[in-house]
Amino acid sequence: MTTDPKPDYSEQTQWMLRIRDQRDKRAFAQLFGFYAPRLKGFVMRAGAPAAQAEDIVQDVLLTVWRKAHMFDPARAQVSSWIYQIARNRQIDVIRKEARPVPEALAIDDETGEDPDGAEVMALEQETDRLRDALAKLAPAQREMIERAYLGELTHTEIRDATGLPLGTIKSRIRLGLDRLRHELKELR
């Protein structure tokens, strides 16, 4: 898995693939430049004081570096992957107890690879659509969505905070999972 990142992937995906495949520190610095301020803004909105926020930002981005081998752009965008790491980190800090996480799907180097990048591109396009949908929401509705994903709403409050169309991205991810299950079965 040392192929060069596809040029039509987003910058973020290209940085992350260089980190994963070439352990490229320049790419890490670029990724840091993009995500560190956003992460800091995010964890401060979620209640962390500024000093602690920078510790969390550093922890999250170090985790990105160390766990880069687990990054699979056909299954999650960089933003989604960093969101998961940030939520886990913040919850572990608050609760001092690891959050229960689902079983990982066994990804072995060559399996789960998407040779022509079609799945990666499709997922990027679906994520762009979500980004547009968020930008087009009325301010009050957008505020509710932000609060939901910052972890400020209970599940019953989230039920009423509709707005982001997740149906197509969900089917897209589901197809990828089916393909992966099929490949894993053939390996056995």
């Binding site: 909105r45 992957w81 998961q84 979500l130 930008a135 969505i145 994903y149 910052l150 997740l166």
Partner: peptide, 14 residues
């Protein structure tokens, strides 16, 4: 989580 990632990117940077 994809939606969470989109919100993470869209929220004000510090």
């Amino acid at each position: 989580e994809a939606a969470g990632g989109v919100v993470l990117e869209a929220i004000g940077a510090a």
